[in-house]
């Protein structure tokens, strides 16, 4: 089982890398470089702030875009090209395929984010000429971004396990946007009454809570994040993405493949 899982994971990663998914790194570096003269013009205190905001936001955005656009093809492309047939004719369980794909894309995103982080810290050293303790805090924000990817990859995979790529992309993107406002949805539920309240609370728990996984502005202003929040968010991301993956398996297990 583990050897099959790792084979699928690594193959997914290898395909993504060779499909030039990592080229977005070039764009990321160009963005940082293009912003550099801008940082110079702004007063001293703001340089770092803007670099952090631009850097971390684009890390998150690039990653989510990759998660959605690679994720929607993960299953459907294999069905369309019938490569899945040759896999299912082997001693591979369908759930292994889904889980392997999940880890493969997540691995791709982690490597991608890792490389971006290196580039980002280099830019940070160039602008500030030094690293401080506050800069170590940035790793928490980056860690939360990776947790976001865990959730988004699982959701995209869930949609692509039963829907067409276009619809999967639409669903996943919609959930990404709603998830950013997850706490507002919950507050709305608190204000509402009757059936609306019930529906809104259900929706608030169903959509991914991406709001609490976005601490970019907080970190950029050097406000810390408590250790227990890091732990709880980790647990949440693991539970949520595992639940979405279980749902994907549930659907995919019984699906007739065209």
């Amino acid at each position: 089982m583990t050897s099959r899982l790792s084979a699928i994971t690594l193959n997914t990663f290898r395909e993504a890398v060779r499909d030039r998914v990592l080229y977005n790194l070039v764009l990321f570096v160009l963005l940082l470089v293009a912003c550099a003269p801008l940082f110079g013009q702004i007063s001293i205190g703001l340089e770092r702030l803007i670099l952090v905001n631009v850097g971390l936001s684009s890390m998150s955005l690039f990653g989510v875009i990759i998660a959605i656009f690679v994720g929607i093809g993960l299953v459907s492309k294999e069905i369309e090209k019938k490569t899945l047939y040759t896999i299912l004719a082997r001693p591979v369980r369908r759930w292994e395929f889904i889980v392997g794909k999940y880890f493969g894309l997540l691995l791709t995103l982690i490597v991608n984010t890792g490389l971006m982080t290196v580039g980002f810290y280099i830019a940070l050293i160039i602008t500030a000429h030094q690293l401080t303790r506050a800069d170590a805090l940035l790793l928490v924000a980056i860690y939360f971004i990776v947790l976001q990817f865990m959730v988004m990859v699982a959701l995209t995979l869930l949609f692509s396990s039963f829907s067409t790529p276009i619809f999967s992309a639409i669903f996943a993107f919609a959930l990404f946007v709603i998830g950013t406002f997850a706490e507002d949805l919950k507050n709305f539920a608190a204000l509402a009454h009757g059936a609306t309240k019930w529906l809104a609370s259900a929706a608030a728990y169903l959509v991914p809570n991406l709001a609490s996984l976005n601490v970019i502005s907080q970190i950029a202003h050097e406000h810390g994040v408590s250790g227990s929040l890091v732990l709880m968010n980790t647990i949440y991301a693991v539970f949520y993405s595992a639940a979405a993956t279980a749902a994907a398996v549930l659907i995919f297990e019984r699906r007739n493949l065209k």
């Binding site: 193959n11 290898r14 395909e15 060779r18 499909d19 090209k81 019938k82 490569t83 047939y85 040759t86």
Partner: peptide, 11 residues
Amino acid sequence: LPEQPYFYDYL
């Protein structure tokens, strides 16, 4: 062997 097989492009 499936009908009209097609494989991973980048391998």
